[in-house]
Design a protein around this nucleic acid. Sequence first.
DNA 1: ATGAAAGCGCTAACAC
DNA 2: GTGTTAGCGCTTTCAT
Lengths: 344, 344
Amino acid sequence: MTDTAPRPTLEAVAARAGVSRATVSRVVNGGDGVREALVTRVRRAVEELGYVPNQAARSLVTRRHDAVAVVIAEPETRVFADPFFALQLRGISKELTAHDNQLVLLLTEGRDDHVRVGRYLAGGHVDGALVFSLHLDDPLPGLIQHAGVPTVFGGRPGWSESGGDAVFVDSDNRGGAREAVRHLVGLGRSRVAHITGPLDQTSAADRLEGFRDVMPDADPRLVEESDFTPAGGERAMRELLDRRPDVDAVFAANDLSAAGALRVLRERGRRVPEDVAVIGFDDMLPVAEQTDPPLTTVRQDIEGMGRLMARLLLDRLGHRTAEGAEGAPSSVVLPTTLVRRASA
Amino acid sequence: MTDTAPRPTLEAVAARAGVSRATVSRVVNGGDGVREALVTRVRRAVEELGYVPNQAARSLVTRRHDAVAVVIAEPETRVFADPFFALQLRGISKELTAHDNQLVLLLTEGRDDHVRVGRYLAGGHVDGALVFSLHLDDPLPGLIQHAGVPTVFGGRPGWSESGGDAVFVDSDNRGGAREAVRHLVGLGRSRVAHITGPLDQTSAADRLEGFRDVMPDADPRLVEESDFTPAGGERAMRELLDRRPDVDAVFAANDLSAAGALRVLRERGRRVPEDVAVIGFDDMLPVAEQTDPPLTTVRQDIEGMGRLMARLLLDRLGHRTAEGAEGAPSSVVLPTTLVRRASA
DNA sequence: ATGAAAGCGCTAACAC
DNA sequence: GTGTTAGCGCTTTCAT
């Protein structure tokens, strides 16, 4: 098939431009300290020959790869039914591309994969890692710390030990939850229920905290643990209605479970928002805009989180992406905004 | 921070095991033609030192990277609101991982990115590429062909010229559409409408073909072009109802637009499926299971498509993944299945 | 079956 | 400023 035409080397470009390899190398890498005339000549030779640097040869000597691993640890299919990671990836990709870095995607499911990922990261194939680790008991962060690769986490890692120095980017889950619940209270609702996410995930735990911040004395029967799925939302809503038929508002930890709750409310003859006001979380458009009624929810800037993660990592790798603020970059918590639609 | 402990080299392992670098290299690469005793000794040394081969050095001489690029060209945000790519990626990742290949993700939006991707692929940084190119006028396939990298496409590429030799994996869009429409006909419906996707995408075009296969004489007013979005589905459904109030079934080109259609039907007081039966396409669970009523739809094995794409590419790269069928691998069209829920 | 040695293409001291 | 040179860590003939 494709005749692998031997790609031109530095040597070839040097010959063509009538200079040494070193000069070509300098030009290719920015051209500082090379006379304008030569720079132009070399550039043209590069152009004419269609020269592309051999990244392997370069890495071999620089020990840099201009590549970053993105590790998504998600055993559950559910997460893939959700555009969350896709959006983060998009943000990450944009930022990495802008700084000429490659994105190596590592998807894991299960322990075996953890070992594999650990080895890969420790193997020094990439300059850094962006890691999504959503569960409290996830061994991955530990493995990565062990691998000694500069890392930024997506979402607050849920580990207690030595977590102090972990750099992460997260949404203000707690603040967003507070805002949602306050909005419900502002609507005059006093019997506000909360359908939680899986509480071994920090995002779900933080949203529950936010709920409690505003409703510190809530009847425990107004809180039902669920799992971020529509079916889970349905189940939880039934439970809540059975226990407290007088409930007049629901804050669901994500849009999917809110959609489930909405269905049960309709089925039980409750009008939304007249009888029961409902708020979700995420502002996952294909869900939030399609429910009946459309869902009031807490929006987080998912793509922005991705961008920021990449930027933080590149900073840490010495890429000084923008403002020269080098030094130990620290974690960032991004604000959320309440999006009002018809459900509350 | 992390003290970059100099990672052990082949040299170090050789010294430790009391053999030459060449021998260690042989062992690391399979150990053929090396005495058992030595193999064991080397293996232990590798273990003890925690040796991991330097991929850059290896690539430099072998000209292989054990890495594959996945190119997703999608200017539209919509696609990211859809778990389609995430699932394909998962399938791809599994297969690549199983064969020790890395996945380099290239996301593009817009012409500038095309150039960048073209250069990257031509640069010989990866052994092959998996490309999702969904639009008829997409210049990407051309660029890639030009780059001379072994490639497998996701979805039938929509280019006319020289497309004969392109290897791709696709769902049986046409067959699935036929099955859906036949099902509607089998239900006794005779005024079956079709809400298409954007017809510059082969998947949408093929589904329309399938519709026409079964309804060759359909009133043109029963076909309305749309765009795979819920809002587009609503608009199309309104149009159809205005033109043909007697419509008794709708085949929508995807679940999202079917969901939009469902809303309009309810709003107009049509009962589903009694008055109008509705079928979607994709079996995108968070949508299809959450509509009211739940959507009958055509399922495609998205993850399977991803796996297969990777397998085909690896075959082509000489990885002989399973059955030794080497030689020119050819395109594959995967079957679809009708999933019956309540809407038809 | 094993070792010695020659590069792969590039960057980075170091000379000039 | 520009050229010379010595490797980066590995695979792969070619001897032995």
